[in-house]
Simulated assay, not measured.
Amino acid sequence: MPLGVVMRRTPGVTRWARWHWIASGILPGAQAADWRELRRDGETVEYHADTVPLTLWATDTEAYRVGLADNPPCIYVILREATATDARMPYEVHLVTASPYEAQDYADSGEEIVEKVPMSAGLIAWVQAFIDTHHEDEVFIKRRRDKKRVDLVEDGIGDSRIEQLTDVYRAPRRKAGLQ
C-alpha cells in the first residue's frame, strides 16, 4: 500500500538548529509527491514529503501483532539525511514499516532517524486483516544437548612431535643447527 509521509517543519528552539523536523502524519493510498506544501501556519509548515510503499511480509506477522498491541499502534518512518547536493529538504524518506522489530534495527544503527506516527483506523484494519490471513503460530522447540560423553580420554591431542607432557598444544620449534 502506498503511504504518503507528512513532515512538519517548525522553528528551532536554539541558535544552533534553525529548523526542527518531525514526521507528523501518514496518508494511506497517497499519490507520488516531492515535498509538496500542504499547510502553513506562520513559520510552521507541513509537507507531503514522499510516497513510499508499505510492504507486509508473511514471515513478520508476529512483529506486526506486537506493533498493533502498542497504544496507539504506529507506523515507523525511517528517514535519512539527504545525500544530493541540490536537495531542497534535509531528509529523504527511506521506508515505512509496521514492524517495531525492523524499526529497532534501523534505530540501532544510529545512521537513520526513526519516527513513530500513529496509524489510522483503516490502516489498523488492513494490517490486522493481513495478520489474520497469514499468521501461523510457531511451536517452541527446546534445544536439547547432544549425548556426547565428556568423561572419555581424548586421544591425539596436540602435536606428536612434542615430547614433553606439559603443553600438548604448543607448536614444535626448529632445533638449533638444523636448517
Rank of each mutant, 00 (worst) to 15 (best):
P90Y: 10
L152R: 08
T133N: 15
L54H: 05
R145N: 14
G158A: 08
V45F: 02
G12A: 04
V114Q: 06
G122C: 01
L95A: 13
E62F: 04
E102A: 09
L68I: 08
W57N: 09
I131M: 00
V66C: 05
H48R: 05
P118G: 02
A98N: 03
E115R: 06
R40Y: 06
H94N: 12
L123E: 09
R143N: 12
G156L: 03
K147A: 10
L68G: 10
T133Y: 11
H135P: 10
T61G: 09
R8A: 09
G12Q: 03
T97D: 03
D70E: 15
A58D: 15
C74Q: 10
Y64E: 07
V45R: 03
Q179I: 15
A176V: 02
P2Q: 12
L123R: 00
F140S: 03
V127R: 04
A32D: 14
H20A: 11
T85L: 13
A87D: 10
A129Q: 06
P11M: 00
F140V: 08
A32C: 04
R39S: 09
E136Q: 12
I157V: 15
E112F: 15
I157Q: 13
I78N: 09
R173C: 14
L178P: 14
R9K: 08
R88F: 06
D159P: 07
Q179R: 13
V52D: 11
D70R: 12
A82G: 12
